[in-house]
Protein backbone atom coordinates (compact mmCIF):
# COMPACT_ATOMS: atom_id res chain seq x y z
CA UNK A 1 0.00 0.00 0.00
CA UNK A 2 1.19 3.45 -0.88
CA UNK A 3 0.82 6.18 1.74
CA UNK A 4 0.57 9.86 0.90
CA UNK A 5 1.60 12.30 3.65
CA UNK A 6 0.92 16.01 3.38
CA UNK A 7 3.40 18.33 5.06
CA UNK A 8 3.32 22.09 5.58
CA UNK A 9 6.05 24.59 6.29
CA UNK A 10 5.04 26.86 9.16
CA UNK A 11 6.63 29.30 11.60
CA UNK A 12 8.61 27.29 14.16
CA UNK A 13 6.39 26.68 17.19
CA UNK A 14 8.94 28.27 19.55
CA UNK A 15 9.06 31.56 17.66
CA UNK A 16 6.87 34.41 18.93
CA UNK A 17 4.95 35.92 16.01
CA UNK A 18 3.97 39.54 15.41
CA UNK A 19 1.53 41.29 13.13
CA UNK A 20 2.89 43.63 10.47
CA UNK A 21 2.61 47.25 11.61
CA UNK A 22 -0.16 47.96 9.08
CA UNK A 23 -2.15 44.95 10.32
CA UNK A 24 -2.31 43.41 6.83
CA UNK A 25 -0.64 40.13 7.68
CA UNK A 26 1.65 38.19 9.98
CA UNK A 27 5.31 39.30 9.94
CA UNK A 28 7.16 36.36 8.35
CA UNK A 29 10.34 38.04 7.09
CA UNK A 30 13.40 36.44 8.63
CA UNK A 31 11.30 34.22 10.91
CA UNK A 32 12.53 30.66 11.48
CA UNK A 33 10.34 28.13 9.68
CA UNK A 34 9.92 24.42 10.28
CA UNK A 35 7.76 21.43 9.40
CA UNK A 36 4.34 21.62 11.09
CA UNK A 37 4.68 19.43 14.22
CA UNK A 38 1.48 17.46 13.53
CA UNK A 39 2.71 16.72 10.00
CA UNK A 40 5.96 15.40 11.42
CA UNK A 41 3.84 12.96 13.46
CA UNK A 42 2.03 11.93 10.25
CA UNK A 43 5.38 11.26 8.52
CA UNK A 44 6.58 9.23 11.50
CA UNK A 45 3.43 7.10 11.47
CA UNK A 46 3.84 6.40 7.76
CA UNK A 47 7.46 5.34 8.37
CA UNK A 48 6.39 2.98 11.15
CA UNK A 49 3.81 1.39 8.84
CA UNK A 50 6.55 0.86 6.27
CA UNK A 51 8.85 -0.66 8.89
CA UNK A 52 6.05 -3.08 9.79
CA UNK A 53 5.86 -4.10 6.14
CA UNK A 54 2.38 -2.60 5.68
CA UNK A 55 3.32 0.39 3.56
CA UNK A 56 5.29 -0.19 0.39
CA UNK A 57 6.01 3.41 -0.54
CA UNK A 58 5.66 6.76 1.21
CA UNK A 59 5.18 9.90 -0.82
CA UNK A 60 5.33 13.29 0.89
CA UNK A 61 3.61 16.26 -0.71
CA UNK A 62 3.79 19.93 0.08
CA UNK A 63 1.81 22.74 -1.49
CA UNK A 64 2.23 26.40 -2.08
CA UNK A 65 4.95 28.89 -1.49
CA UNK A 66 8.31 28.37 -3.17
CA UNK A 67 10.12 27.55 0.05
CA UNK A 68 7.95 24.58 1.02
CA UNK A 69 10.63 22.12 -0.12
CA UNK A 70 12.21 22.68 3.32
CA UNK A 71 9.41 20.68 4.90
CA UNK A 72 9.81 18.02 2.21
CA UNK A 73 13.58 17.83 2.82
CA UNK A 74 12.81 17.18 6.46
CA UNK A 75 10.38 14.41 5.50
CA UNK A 76 12.91 12.92 3.07
CA UNK A 77 15.58 13.00 5.79
CA UNK A 78 13.19 11.19 8.14
CA UNK A 79 12.90 8.45 5.52
CA UNK A 80 10.05 9.01 3.08
CA UNK A 81 10.73 7.55 -0.39
CA UNK A 82 9.67 10.35 -2.65
CA UNK A 83 8.57 13.96 -2.48
CA UNK A 84 6.56 16.22 -4.66
CA UNK A 85 5.57 19.83 -4.41
CA UNK A 86 2.64 21.58 -6.04
CA UNK A 87 3.84 24.97 -7.15
CA UNK A 88 1.28 27.76 -6.89
CA UNK A 89 3.49 30.72 -7.59
CA UNK A 90 3.59 31.72 -3.94
CA UNK A 91 -0.21 31.89 -3.61
CA UNK A 92 -1.62 31.87 -0.10
CA UNK A 93 -3.63 28.64 0.20
CA UNK A 94 -6.71 28.22 2.35
CA UNK A 95 -7.85 24.80 3.61
CA UNK A 96 -10.40 24.22 0.83
CA UNK A 97 -7.78 24.97 -1.83
CA UNK A 98 -5.32 22.69 -0.03
CA UNK A 99 -7.91 19.90 -0.04
CA UNK A 100 -8.61 20.36 -3.75
CA UNK A 101 -4.92 20.32 -4.68
CA UNK A 102 -4.38 17.27 -2.47
CA UNK A 103 -7.28 15.56 -4.19
CA UNK A 104 -5.54 16.13 -7.53
CA UNK A 105 -2.37 14.57 -6.08
CA UNK A 106 -4.33 11.61 -4.67
CA UNK A 107 -5.89 10.95 -8.08
CA UNK A 108 -2.44 10.94 -9.62
CA UNK A 109 -0.68 8.86 -6.95
CA UNK A 110 -3.56 6.51 -5.98
CA UNK A 111 -2.50 5.97 -2.34
CA UNK A 112 -4.35 3.54 -0.08
CA UNK A 113 -4.08 5.89 2.89
CA UNK A 114 -3.58 9.63 3.31
CA UNK A 115 -2.05 10.88 6.55
CA UNK A 116 -2.14 14.56 7.50
CA UNK A 117 -1.62 16.52 10.72
CA UNK A 118 -4.77 17.40 12.63
CA UNK A 119 -4.07 21.11 12.21
CA UNK A 120 -1.35 23.51 11.14
CA UNK A 121 -0.06 25.64 13.99
CA UNK A 122 -0.15 28.86 11.94
CA UNK A 123 -3.80 29.20 10.92
CA UNK A 124 -5.10 26.67 13.49
CA UNK A 125 -7.90 25.74 11.07
CA UNK A 126 -7.91 21.92 11.36
CA UNK A 127 -9.89 21.44 8.15
CA UNK A 128 -7.81 20.18 5.21
CA UNK A 129 -7.97 16.45 6.05
CA UNK A 130 -11.73 16.38 6.55
CA UNK A 131 -12.31 18.47 3.41
CA UNK A 132 -10.08 16.13 1.43
CA UNK A 133 -12.05 13.12 2.67
CA UNK A 134 -15.27 14.87 1.64
CA UNK A 135 -13.98 15.70 -1.85
CA UNK A 136 -12.71 12.14 -2.38
CA UNK A 137 -15.81 10.65 -0.73
CA UNK A 138 -13.51 8.60 1.50
CA UNK A 139 -14.02 7.72 5.16
CA UNK A 140 -12.12 9.88 7.65
CA UNK A 141 -10.72 9.49 11.15
CA UNK A 142 -9.64 12.70 12.86
CA UNK A 143 -7.39 13.24 15.91
CA UNK A 144 -5.84 9.77 15.74
CA UNK A 145 -3.84 8.67 18.77
CA UNK A 146 -3.46 5.08 17.59
CA UNK A 147 -3.53 3.57 14.11
CA UNK A 148 -3.57 -0.09 13.13
CA UNK A 149 -4.05 -1.54 9.67
CA UNK A 150 -6.04 -4.77 9.88
CA UNK A 151 -6.65 -6.27 6.46
CA UNK A 152 -8.59 -3.79 4.33
CA UNK A 153 -9.43 -1.63 7.36
CA UNK A 154 -7.74 1.10 9.35
CA UNK A 155 -8.60 0.81 13.04
CA UNK A 156 -8.14 4.24 14.58
CA UNK A 157 -8.36 5.35 18.19
CA UNK A 158 -9.36 9.01 18.31
CA UNK A 159 -8.94 11.66 20.97
CA UNK A 160 -12.45 12.94 21.68
CA UNK A 161 -14.03 15.15 24.36
CA UNK A 162 -13.90 13.25 27.64
CA UNK A 163 -11.82 10.27 26.48
CA UNK A 164 -11.03 8.18 23.43
CA UNK A 165 -13.08 6.37 20.81
CA UNK A 166 -12.10 3.65 18.37
CA UNK A 167 -13.52 3.44 14.86
CA UNK A 168 -12.74 1.21 11.86
CA UNK A 169 -12.54 2.59 8.33
CA UNK A 170 -12.55 0.79 5.01
CA UNK A 171 -9.46 1.77 3.02
CA UNK A 172 -8.72 4.01 1.21
CA UNK A 173 -9.20 6.61 3.94
CA UNK A 174 -7.91 9.90 5.34
CA UNK A 175 -6.51 9.98 8.87
CA UNK A 176 -5.53 13.18 10.72
CA UNK A 177 -2.84 12.75 13.34
CA UNK A 178 -2.94 14.01 16.93
CA UNK A 179 -0.04 14.66 19.27
CA UNK A 180 -0.14 11.37 21.08
CA UNK A 181 0.05 9.16 18.01
CA UNK A 182 3.84 8.88 18.26
CA UNK A 183 7.12 10.64 19.02
CA UNK A 184 8.78 11.55 15.71
CA UNK A 185 12.35 10.34 15.21
CA UNK A 186 15.26 12.77 15.16
CA UNK A 187 16.78 13.50 11.81
CA UNK A 188 20.44 12.49 11.66
CA UNK A 189 22.87 14.78 9.88
CA UNK A 190 23.95 12.23 7.23
CA UNK A 191 20.30 11.63 6.38
CA UNK A 192 19.75 15.35 6.01
CA UNK A 193 22.73 15.54 3.64
CA UNK A 194 21.41 12.60 1.64
CA UNK A 195 17.92 14.13 1.52
CA UNK A 196 19.40 17.19 -0.14
CA UNK A 197 20.44 15.01 -3.07
CA UNK A 198 17.02 13.40 -3.53
CA UNK A 199 14.99 15.05 -6.30
CA UNK A 200 11.73 16.78 -5.46
CA UNK A 201 9.24 16.54 -8.26
CA UNK A 202 7.51 19.82 -9.03
CA UNK A 203 3.91 19.84 -10.23
CA UNK A 204 2.53 23.07 -11.63
CA UNK A 205 -0.75 23.83 -9.82
CA UNK A 206 -2.18 25.15 -13.08
CA UNK A 207 -2.00 21.61 -14.50
CA UNK A 208 -4.38 20.35 -11.82
CA UNK A 209 -7.14 22.69 -12.99
CA UNK A 210 -7.91 23.59 -9.37
CA UNK A 211 -9.11 27.10 -8.60
CA UNK A 212 -7.15 27.93 -5.47
CA UNK A 213 -8.12 31.59 -5.16
CA UNK A 214 -8.90 32.50 -1.53
CA UNK A 215 -12.55 32.28 -0.49
CA UNK A 216 -12.05 34.08 2.79
CA UNK A 217 -10.68 37.60 2.84
CA UNK A 218 -8.30 38.51 5.65
CA UNK A 219 -9.17 42.05 6.73
CA UNK A 220 -6.83 42.51 9.66
CA UNK A 221 -4.25 40.78 11.85
CA UNK A 222 -3.64 42.21 15.30
CA UNK A 223 -2.29 41.23 18.69
CA UNK A 224 -4.99 40.49 21.28
CA UNK A 225 -5.54 43.13 23.94
CA UNK A 226 -2.87 42.71 26.61
CA UNK A 227 -3.95 41.68 30.10
CA UNK A 228 -3.77 44.25 32.85
CA UNK A 229 -0.60 43.82 34.91
CA UNK A 230 -1.21 41.67 37.96
CA UNK A 231 0.25 41.74 41.44
CA UNK A 232 2.38 39.34 43.45
CA UNK A 233 1.05 38.28 46.81
CA UNK A 234 3.27 37.27 49.71
CA UNK A 235 1.28 34.39 51.19
CA UNK A 236 -1.61 31.98 50.70
CA UNK A 237 -3.59 34.03 53.25
CA UNK A 238 -3.16 37.20 51.21
CA UNK A 239 -4.09 35.34 48.02
CA UNK A 240 -7.37 34.11 49.51
CA UNK A 241 -8.10 37.61 50.81
CA UNK A 242 -7.54 39.14 47.35
CA UNK A 243 -9.66 36.48 45.65
CA UNK A 244 -12.51 37.03 48.12
CA UNK A 245 -12.26 40.79 47.57
CA UNK A 246 -12.37 40.35 43.79
CA UNK A 247 -15.60 38.36 44.10
CA UNK A 248 -14.53 35.18 42.28
CA UNK A 249 -14.75 33.03 45.40
Amino acid sequence: MKILVAVKRVVDHNVPVRAKPDGSDVELDGVRMNINPFDEIAVEEALRLKEKGIATEIVAVSLGSAASPEALRHALAMGVDRALTVETGGAFLQPLAVAKLLKAVVEREQPGLVLVGKQAIDNDAGQAGQMLAALLDWPQATFASELKIEGAEAVVTREVDGGVETIALALPAVVTCDLRLNAPRFVKLPNLMMAKKKPIEVVDAAETGVNFAPRVKRLKVAAPAPRKAGIKVASVGELVEKLRASGVL
Binding site: Q94, A125, G126, Q127, F143, V216
Partner: peptide, 23 residues
Protein backbone atom coordinates in the same frame (compact mmCIF):
# COMPACT_ATOMS: atom_id res chain seq x y z
CA UNK B 1 -15.75 24.25 18.44
CA UNK B 2 -15.50 20.81 20.07
CA UNK B 3 -14.68 17.29 18.85
CA UNK B 4 -17.96 16.66 17.00
CA UNK B 5 -17.96 19.88 14.99
CA UNK B 6 -14.21 19.85 14.38
CA UNK B 7 -14.69 16.40 12.82
CA UNK B 8 -17.93 17.03 10.94
CA UNK B 9 -18.14 20.66 9.79
CA UNK B 10 -15.01 20.72 7.61
CA UNK B 11 -16.42 17.65 5.85
CA UNK B 12 -19.71 19.51 5.38
CA UNK B 13 -17.85 22.54 4.00
CA UNK B 14 -15.98 20.24 1.60
CA UNK B 15 -19.26 18.66 0.42
CA UNK B 16 -20.81 22.10 -0.11
CA UNK B 17 -17.67 23.55 -1.71
CA UNK B 18 -17.52 26.45 0.75
CA UNK B 19 -14.88 27.73 3.14
CA UNK B 20 -15.13 27.17 6.88
CA UNK B 21 -14.40 29.57 9.72
CA UNK B 22 -12.97 27.73 12.74
CA UNK B 23 -13.15 28.84 16.36
Amino acid sequence: HATLAKDVLPRVAGLLDVAMIAD
